[in-house]
């Protein structure tokens, strides 16, 4: 793998300096949107269409 001298804290610090907050926010928003759509969206059309998937993945909010 890569350099194994750094620590978890170093990785977080490096990520903090190299990725600006806006990018991080956008990435987080994208992940949240995808997660929400798959796990929690209760809108009937979306919800029922993902029905089998939720059962299969053991996601409780089906």
């Amino acid at each position: 793998m890569s350099t194994n001298t750094d620590t978890v804290a170093d990785r977080f610090a490096a990520a903090g300096t190299r990725i600006d907050p806006m990018t991080a926010l956008v990435a987080l928003a994208l992940v949240a949107a995808l997660g929400f759509g798959l796990l929690f969206a209760q809108e009937p059309l979306v919800h029922d269409a993902l029905h089998d998937f939720r059962h299969g993945a053991g996601i409780v909010c089906h």
């Binding site: 620590t7 978890v8 990785r11 992940v31 995808l34 798959l38 998937f53």
Partner: peptide, 28 residues
């Protein structure tokens, strides 16, 4: 069909989270 697509997206979501988490926590 949509559920199968949901399965694919589920994999992508977990994989993306996995990649970032791996990079951050790999030393530990």
């Amino acid at each position: 069909v949509v559920s199968a697509g949901g399965g694919v997206l589920w994999g992508v979501l977990l994989g993306a989270a996995f990649g970032v988490a791996y990079h951050l926590f790999e030393p530990g």
